[in-house]
């Protein structure tokens, strides 16, 4: 238990005792209400989980690791397009130089495969385990994963126009290496594309990502 939660417990306990004592001995209702407020605040502080920023640090480590993979893909000349496909076993990322129109019925077992005439790198999405247990529509799932579960942004707003999905990530906490954005996408792009492929049951490509004052705009396209 950290100091914040410890202080909350102290506040709740002292508020409870003071409430009882004040009510029985003094009978001053506003003062009793004040101690009740302290009790509620103390409990609220106690129920607040401990510092969650460590998640942002871990995700930064993952981003840097994926950035190295992106460099590898660029060296092999297969880094321009990333498509996210959901299978029963998880979400897989197909990284290729040219856009793909078809995908295998089951995830390839090797890192490098050929689809048509294109050389394709196949990765399991880092969000595969999280996304696998998700139910519900794309917009609410995105908010749940990015804001509530991973706590890497303040909000997510999604809109659809035909097969194009536009998502605005408000106040992202993590900055993304440019190299990663050009290949598999930032951690936000990976999250949203993985969730979209699961939610819609169709392959999803990451069209582009833009940083702006309002947040991070991520455009996806269902295939």
């Amino acid at each position: 238990m950290n100091r914040f939660r410890g202080f909350g417990v102290s506040l709740a306990l002292s508020g409870t005792v003071l409430t009882i004592v004040t009510y029985l001995l003094l009978g001053l209702v506003p003062l009793v209400a004040l101690w009740i407020a302290f009790t509620i605040l103390g409990l609220s502080m106690f129920l607040t989980p401990e510092e969650a920023l460590v998640k942002a640090d871990l995700l930064a480590v993952i981003e840097d690791f994926l950035s190295n993979l992106s460099a590898l893909f660029e060296a092999f000349g297969a880094s321009s397009h990333a498509a996210y496909v959901c299978y029963d076993g998880g979400v897989y990322v197909f990284v290729s130089e040219e856009p793909l129109s078809t995908f295998p019925d089951s995830p390839p077992k090797s890192l490098v495969t050929a689809i048509g005439s294109s050389r394709v790198f196949v990765l399991r999405s880092p969000l595969s385990s999280i996304v696998g247990g998700l139910e519900g529509e794309f917009s609410s799932s995105s908010y749940h994963v990015i804001v509530e579960l991973l706590e890497v942004a303040d909000g997510v707003e999604c809109s659809e126009q035909g097969d194009t999905l536009s998502c605005l990530v408000r106040k992202p906490y993590i900055s993304s290496p440019g190299r990663l954005e050009r290949t598999v996408g930032s951690i936000y792009g990976m999250c949203l594309a993985s969730i979209a492929s699961k939610a819609y049951g169709r392959p999803v490509t990451l069209v582009r990502e833009e940083a702006s004052k309002r947040g991070r705009l991520i455009v996806l396209r269902r295939m």
Binding site: A37, L41, A52
Partner: peptide, 22 residues
């Protein structure tokens, strides 16, 4: 962080409510 901001706002609201109603 929103967890701490929510506690801060809640405490402000509650601690203003008591004297105002009083």
């Amino acid at each position: 962080h929103r967890n701490y901001l929510s506690n801060t706002v809640l405490s402000s609201l509650m601690l203003f409510t008591v004297p105002i109603l009083w």
